[in-house]
Design a binder for these strands. Structure first.
Lengths: 342, 342
DNA sequence: TAGATTTGTTTAAACGTTTGAATCGGGGCC
DNA sequence: GGCCCCGATTCAAACGTTTAAACAAATCTA
């Protein structure tokens, strides 16, 4: 590997100063056109590589943005990330991605690393139990933060997520309108604002329709296919078997449908199932999954924009922004079959 | 936001020099125990944040490692990434993740960005058509590279991937042993080494068994569920309908099974299907998918280790390392049903 | 007791950029 | 001809660390 090529290498080769070279490479109007061209040519010829750490040490802008979510493998976040990526790419920001797997500690490590690297900002879906102080750590050190998918108590930064109570109410009402009365709710926990909201939407819809809220019909659990698959056993063991299920998300719903099929019943016919998120996968599941579109791409896009706006000095977007979910009706929900559920 | 706290802030507060503070914070034996404790205490009290860009400017080690793959949303890569993450976390390296979506340009941008940030190394699954010069760009600037999943002609860096020809041969032979003779191969392209290898494994197994290689039975396509789902139509329209299919990967296989089910046939019974990769999802699909384990976690782990070794000066691992795939037999493959396939 | 060693700390230069202020050689203006 | 201004370029300091080398004081050693 040849000697490192830096500004001064180019400067010396041309008999100029590093200042001129620096300005020229950044298209400053201060340097003569002809000089700029000579400099740029030489830079390419020598294989010059801009040293961002040196630059950012001087300018205190690194061009790095951090994004941390529960699990990037989860298609729900993956769709959000894709939207963020598209938006940030446009403004030539590098982004650093991390999972926290709901470990507050891993999340704080990430924030600290990002501060050390001089990150310009952070977009995060906070881990369960995130203390306000962890967000303030970023804020106090001049690194703006945007929240997605979940809120953190006492923190008032721009926050984007779906209107969960409204969304599960949509799904529940859909099932009620099909004649179902014993409707289970599967997956998720009550330890997050999302969890509480989703349950509230379901519970309110049930009450409003005059239906009984049987605690045995609430089966909490992780938010994975595996968990939905396993819940099927529990679900089908219930003596008064439910005829329909509102699932935490599409993954749980697909897992549940697989579990139902494995038990010899026909999902969508014997038991109606709704998902949540409307992942790409929902449409090609068998049967095609009725679900609630949760606006992941909107969340990602808005979050990225809000951060870029903040970096440019505006702060209009503070506070909570809810995206209204929409029903996507497919084949996994059908009118109550009077013979089923016994 | 208060004034920035730096080494000199701590130094002044304690009447010491920045050198002492710098050494103390890094647990150098050069500084007295009592002094070190005072310094560390003060650092916490003042909320000191280590500035890595300044440090790395001096040391030329940034602690940043880049990872670029086709698509992090793809569970195949996601499993590799998880293994890499686990391994790198252990040695406190920050990693920057990116998709190239098989765009050589996006990939080169990533390499350039990483160089600008002073990345210590890069692990990549090269985009289709990656020129050797793009890898050399990294190498020539002192940034070691490791390849996963695919090779690049003329490049001899440590490369880790599954033995694809062997793997598809396993799957094909399994189907042949069940009595199938009209076996399709679905998904993938011939533009990558992986693609050619997988086809070769299938083709050789067919020939060796004395079976005809009907070009109509080769249905190339993207490596997604969607694509498998769509291929079902094409597949079932064949007048001499195949009775079994070797799929490019589990996603294609699951999509294909959904498509078969949608057409009113029973996957695994009317038509046998094999996947590739053995994703978590394969085991809970309906029917549970027979597939080929491709050692993603091994690939990720080995790649990360190889890079860390390189950074520590060793270079033993140069060249290609193949991981031997293994068959995972489940319910999606059954003996040929003489009535089917007509 | 003088010199050598050890222990703990400081000095100062370096890493590669950016940028406000300074310089320089011409013109144009009155 | 003196003055000011202009465009193009350079000077030099700064960003916050690290580290080789120097230093000072205390402790050994012969």
């Amino acid at each position: 590997m040849a000697q490192k090529v830096k500004l001064s290498t180019i400067a010396e080769a041309l008999g100029l100063s590093t200042a001129t070279v620096s300005l020229a490479l950044r298209d400053s109007p201060l340097v003569a056109d002809v000089t700029r061209d000579r400099i740029k040519e030489k830079a390419i010829e020598l294989g010059y590589i801009y040293n961002r750490r040196a630059a950012s040490l001087r300018t205190s802008r690194s061009g790095i943005i951090g994004v941390v979510v529960h699990d990037i493998m989860n298609p729900f976040y993956a769709e959000i990330l894709k939207a963020i990526e598209t938006e940030l790419d446009r403004s030539r920001q590098t982004f650093i991605l991390s999972n926290h797997y709901d470990s507050v500690e891993k999340q704080r490590n990430f924030i600290e690393t990002l501060l050390q690297l001089g990150g310009d900002g952070v977009i995060m879906s906070p881990a369960i139990g995130t203390p306000a102080s962890d967000i303030r750590l970023a804020l106090d050190n001049g690194m703006p933060a945007i929240l997605i998918a979940r809120s953190v108590p006492e923190i008032d930064v721009p926050t984007f997520r779906g209107d969960d109570a409204y969304g599960t109410a949509l799904a529940t009402n859909h099932l009620i309108s099909l004649g179902h009365t014993r409707i289970a709710m599967i997956g998720g926990t009550d330890h997050t604002s999302t969890g509480r909201d989703r349950y509230a939407g379901y519970a309110n819809a049930m009450k409003k329709a005059g239906l009984e809220l049987d605690p045995a019909l609430r089966i909490p659990g992780p938010r994975t296919k595996q968990s939905g698959f396993e819940a099927a056993v529990n679900f089908l063991a219930n003596p008064l078997k439910p005829t329909a299920a509102v699932c935490w998300n599409d993954l749980v719903a697909i897992g549940l449908m697989n579990g139902i099929a494995r038990a010899g019943l026909v999902p969508g016919k014997d038991i109606s199932v709704t998902g949540y998120d409307d992942l790409e996968e929902a449409a090609i599941a068998t049967p095609a999954l009725t679900t609630v579109w949760n606006g992941q791409s909107e969340v990602g896009r808005f979050a990225a924009r809000a951060l870029l706006d903040k970096l440019n000095g505006s702060s209009e977007a503070d506070g909570l922004h809810l995206i209204k979910p929409e029903m996507r009706i497919r084949q996994s929900t059908t009118p109550l079959n009077p013979g089923a559920g016994r």
